[in-house]
Computed example of a mutant assay.
Amino acid sequence: MKQYVFTILLTAAVTFVLSWAVWRLSLKYKLYPGIRERDVHKTPTPRLGGIAMFLGVVAAFAVSSQHPFFAIVWSQPHEIYALLGATGLIVLVGVFDDLWDLDWTIKLGAQFLAAGVIAWFGKLQIYTLPLGGMTIFSSWASFALTVLSIVVVMNAVNFIDGLDGLVAGVCLIANAVFFAYSYMVFRDTGASNYFNLASFIAAVLIGACIGFLPLNWSPARLFMGDAGALMLGLLMACSAISITGNFDPAMMGDNDEFGRSQLLGAFIPILLPVVVVLLPLLDFGLAVVRRMSRGKSPFSPDRKHLHHRMLDMGHSDRDAVLIFYAWTALVSLSVLLMYIGTTLEWPGDYLIGVAYGVVGVAACLVVTFLPSRRPPQPAEAAVAAPSPEPSTENVR
């Protein structure tokens, strides 16, 4: 575990230092776009934080290549090189978009290309579905499912990039839960070395988010932009695929030892990677349906995302972000507690996770639908000049 802690601290330190440097250089050379009609922030703010996060990730992988604890993953270096190459490509395209607003078709094409590099050259694919060990017999079906999954998660994470600290905090919580899950899965298989690529990627992303948040917290001085959001989504998808796409519940041994709920034991490996990004996926799905029903491109920007609706309800931007944090922690921890309950055979088995979820949902619903400040009435908004809001991310 101490090797993972070192990875988190190293990535956080490198990301923080580089984020500060990127922020200062962006201000000095005015490397930031002007305010667009669809933007909700009031002051031009640099959006190149994704560069610092990417370099922090690269630094962590570089150091791991020299550490014997992580030698097992470097025994197949093509997987890592494909992963880093695809990440570098998506960060490069994201930087161009952050500076010059690329057409959505170019960005989507780059996303499919990056996902294809990972699936084809890195051989990181979904080969099995953890539903009774179902195997995907067609190599092309495996390739297509992998590419589609990566692209969907990338866009889902990118779509919620709308408030200061929102994406970084949500991804921090999601990866922390997924790290605990992936670490425990390998522990429960009886492996002598708990290292696995899924846990390592999650640890790296935890560090990147921790290092970036100080400059991204409201009022933000630096945005991660498309480069950072797409990178987080890509790596989170790869982390989930590296363990879920090759997971067979039978490897946990006798089901009586693994847990008393065979059905839950089969579903959790595929359920938890989904629920940790449940809010981004929900927002992404609603946005696609909303835009296509109006005859628009699913990637045309609007101001109807979940976080924008919470602002319209009367929440401040910080309150909205904290509520998103609470929902993310609720859904992900609930499933993690179910997994722990089945493996350790707690009293009540997975009911502890269910109880936590029920109580948490009730609490989250209260804070979500009881805003801390009254939303302005139309008449008041027409008379009074709007007060400046803290800077927020650009609308997706």
Score class of each variant (00 low, 15 high):
Ile201Met: 05
Leu9Arg: 02
Phe69Asn: 11
Ile243Ser: 11
Gly162Trp: 01
Ala382Phe: 15
Val366Ile: 12
Gln125Glu: 03
Leu215Pro: 03
Gln66Ile: 08
Phe186Thr: 09
Val185Ser: 11
Val157Cys: 02
Gly50Val: 12
Leu306Lys: 01
Met310Ser: 11
Leu365His: 07
Ala141Trp: 11
Leu365Met: 09
Leu124Gln: 03
Leu89Gln: 01
Leu279Ser: 11
Thr392Pro: 02
Ala355Val: 15
Ile241Trp: 01
Leu10Gly: 02
Ala115Thr: 08
Met184Glu: 08
Ala203Leu: 07
Ile90Glu: 05
Thr15Met: 13
Met1Ala: 08
Ala21Asp: 00
Ala379Gly: 09
Asn158Ile: 12
Gly165Asn: 03
Lys28Ile: 05
Val152Arg: 03
Phe70Val: 05
Tyr194Gly: 02
Ile201Gln: 05
Tyr4Arg: 00
Val185Gly: 13
Leu145Thr: 09
His305Glu: 05
His307Trp: 03
Ser192Leu: 13
Val57Arg: 02
Tyr81Leu: 03
Met236Asn: 12
Asn255Thr: 15
Ala326Arg: 02
Ala227Val: 12
Ala144Glu: 01
Tyr181Asn: 08
Phe267Asn: 02
Glu345His: 15
Ile106His: 06
Arg374Gly: 01
Val177Thr: 12
Gly285Ala: 09
Ile126Leu: 09
Leu330Gln: 10
Phe159Tyr: 07
Leu108Ala: 06
Gln377Cys: 01
Leu99Tyr: 03
Pro298Thr: 12
Ile35Tyr: 04
Phe96Asp: 10
Phe143His: 00
Phe258Thr: 14
Ala198Phe: 10
Val153Ile: 14
Leu102Asn: 04
Thr105Asn: 07
Arg36Ile: 15
Asp97Leu: 07
Leu351Lys: 08
Asp317Gln: 15
Pro301Glu: 04
Leu235His: 14
Phe137Tyr: 12
Ala114Ile: 14
Leu99Trp: 07
